[in-house]
Design a protein around this nucleic acid. Structure first.
Lengths: 288, 288
DNA sequence: TGACACCGTTTAGCATAATTAAACGCTGAG
DNA sequence: CTCAGCGTTTAATTATGCTAAACGGTGTCA
């Protein structure tokens, strides 16, 4: 018995990312009834609920979140390939970025690059897992981390420390019972298995590392931030969440930060960057 | 304008893997007319041909092959997650393998393990890119390569050297004009960007490495073998292709092999393997 | 407190897309 | 030359997706 409902699953992915059926319906040029139907039918065929129904809307269930992690990744791999094959534009410079980084940092600054280099055709490629660059036709990617990678060569773009963050309720727990208690009780949100970030943070903070019982892997930074706001747990978020900090949706839970972490320009090791890549790197480093 | 035809794309993936519309139709419990329709419509919306029509069937076009690489990966990520969420069987031991390895090596030997350990629930998880183990719920994976990986810990299961292979036409070229000439003229088929395999083979063979003009990345070993048989180029295939060698579909083009390559049992670094994992590893090492 | 706005759900009917059966065209095998 | 195999086409049928409109629940605000 094969699964045959990939269109419905794609609709789910959009609803889950947007967080609302009505808003997703608008995005898709559909009525909310249609979207509601798709989700319901999908839940029936899958055999489990993807969303919890709240008075004021819907929220991802535990399984729904796990599903989103995979569908986002899967569909983005497929979509990026379609795009690439359709505009078979081998002269374009393709930059792999997370949507998180693109919307919060890169996009606002990009016009100046396009002005300075009108000859370079730039394609931003949203990706979740910034791996397998060549196979996805990525010339350069921008990746957050410590900079110690083996599959790519990298240069630091700018430092962007990360620290534990939670919502206001979590913040109250920290004030009340202390950070260590909160870290022990709450779910720790990871960005991926590879990331040693949490372990490094624990050692930087001088807190003994205890293998956490409750762990949730959420690769997409946007989804992770939203999960923290929704009270799912504590995540190491980087400094690009200023907006949420100021608006009080997110709280910094500790002064200890992973100072050596930041955004890096990376390209597949073994390849020599083209002049276009160098232009972009230079420009990025200047404005950073 | 969004792409909205993921079901058709899934049908394409199956047709491409099987290599025939009629056979795929049977697999899907559909008529060949239906499948033909789907493919044609998909090609129209995409704007390019996925298959070349031959008198005796269909063959993937260049773009079709590129598409297959992505759809296979994308759908397998999604499907594996669905399976996992449906049989939320946290006690099962999940082993990530390529379908290539599973069918050619593991499956035939597996009954003896199941007999010896009736208490262990085993789940074989077909994967293309054997990365991101924890995120995909993989306890252990079996990966081919040199064994020098940073994201996983590994122990060698058995050595499985690889050497350049081509079809009979390619073999004739080698006999006629020499291997170096063939390597320079033909497309080199890679398994992924990370793989330094070809470079290492060149140095092992004492042939000077020239950055090849024509390169094709085909992550799935099954598809890669088929591509070689179809005359797409030369690939480094491992010794599990005995069958194709004997039947004359595949030819070994050089005596030089990557002797240090083989299949390894791998698990996410930083995690401690469970006793079930150790049982499986022990059994695997004994029968290897 | 009560009218209202906001969401998601439901219903029934309609529009679109998927699927079939059967005939067709092509090519290579015998 | 005939036949078998494979993909394509056509027209009719079936399944699915979608809409409009009404509905039920909940929080908001006068």
């Amino acid at each position: 018995m094969q699964f045959r409902h990939y269109n419905q699953l794609k609709v789910f992915t959009i609803v889950a990312k947007i967080g609302s059926i009505s808003a997703a319906a608008e995005e898709l040029n559909l009525t909310k009834g249609a979207v509601s139907h798709q989700i319901k039918q999908l839940e029936t065929t899958l055999g489990f609920k993807l969303f919890e129904r709240l008075p004021r809307g819907v929220a991802l269930s535990q399984k729904g979140l796990a599903m989103l992690n995979s569908t986002e990744e899967g569909y983005s791999i497929i979509e990026s390939r379609i795009q690439r094959l359709q505009n078979d534009d081998s002269r374009a410079l393709t930059v792999g970025v997370s949507t998180y980084f693109a919307s919060r940092w890169l996009s606002p600054r990009l016009t100046s690059f396009l002005d300075q280099h009108p000859d370079i055709r730039l394609r931003l490629q949203p990706m979740i897992e910034l791996t397998n660059l060549a196979n996805n036709g990525i010339d350069v990617a921008i990746r957050w981390g410590s900079g110690h990678w083996h599959d790519v060569e990298s240069i630091l773009l700018f430092a962007c420390p990360a620290w534990p963050s939670g919502n206001s309720k979590m913040s109250a727990v920290v004030v009340d019972k202390g950070l260590e208690h909160a870290l022990k009780e709450a779910t720790l949100l990871h960005d991926s298995e590879h990331s040693a970030a949490w372990r490094e943070w624990f050692s930087a903070a001088g807190v003994t590392w205890h293998d956490p019982e409750k762990t949730l892997i959420i690769p997409d930074p946007n989804v992770r931030v939203q999960a923290v706001i929704d009270g799912q747990g504590i995540a190491l978020n980087d400094s690009l969440v200023e907006g949420e900090l100021e608006s009080g949706k997110l709280h910094r839970l500790s002064k200890t930060a992973l100072d050596s972490y930041g955004y890096h320009i990376v390209w597949a090791s073994g390849t020599t960057p083209s002049t276009d890549v160098l232009s972009l790197s230079n420009w990025l480093q200047n404005i950073a």
